[in-house]
Amino acid sequence: MDSPELATMPLPVLEPIKGVKKAPLEEYFTSGHRTCQGCESALVMKLMIKAAGPRTVVLGSTGCMYVANTTYYSTPWVVPWMHTQLGSSGSAAVGTAAGYRALMRKGKIKKEPINVISFCGDIGGADMGLSAISAALQHVDYNHLILLYDNESAANTDIQATGSTPYGAVTTFSPTGPAKRIFHTRWKKNTAAMLAAGHPECRYVATVCASYAVDFMNRVRRALTIGGPTFIHSFDPCPKGWDYDPMLSHELGELAVLTGIWPLFEVEDHTLRLYGKSKAIAEGRQKRLPVRDYLLKQGRFAHFTEDDIDYFQAKIDDMWTQWLIPGVLPFAAEVLNDTPPA
């Protein structure tokens, strides 16, 4: 029964931010959180909402950015914030957006753009919550952004391995010992590309890193203004879980990109774009740094032998030389050369 006018919800106007000096002064995520020294995920929260602005509601599924952020009857949030369950970031976004849509369509509340952002950690996004996020990205009637802040372990619980933990990393569920030097043998999930490839109606999927603040904020703005459900996967160095000096959080984010471990890309209306340093790497304008520069700064890789580092390097080299789309789609190039029988 919806008339098209009623069916489509209004979208916000959020112009791209042109340089750090144009970043909004207002903080909608301020002090009062109990995150670690040098917590990159706390920075992700701050930049995410700085980009989104005041007409936003945020839903946070269980994890560091829940427990450490709003912890113990205190809050750093200026905008409305609500907890949701570990596997529910997708459902929370859909339920909130659907509620607004129904109430606006029926004239029960003022019809206006309201940004709905739902975030999750790597368990909430790449593991337990994956099914609900997949469903959320199919509901094209609802405008919302699901942001996965990925610190590569269940850092809040006690730093346990997840589907996003890199190969070989030490966690409390994957310690190193005389019988098992490498305990965690799974390779990190390629979550953003998987969601982009699997949900062709989803208009925007991007990977980001808060070390590049302006790029980060502009991707959030794009996701909120394009319409429909969108997904952003953020790479968040974690001094606690990775065992490095908090001072290095920013540098490790850059190193993950410069070594090619974390490709920065966005998929907008079926068009894939590598951007920033990753684009430069793909175009050969920037030489990939050796992964050891990144690995050896972290206690979680301190047990790595030269062979382990070489193996890690080889896997990253494959990403950039063998993948159908370098750094994004892990299919062998043979697929292209496949010729049908005469």
């Binding site: 301020t30 002090s31 959180h33 200026v78 905008v79």
Partner: peptide
Amino acid sequence: GMKLGEPIQFGGQVGGYRPQRNPYF
């Protein structure tokens, strides 16, 4: 929730931004 911040006053100068900060932590 937390309140928004405000511009800063110092002597004759007014400007910039100071976010409100959580009193409980």
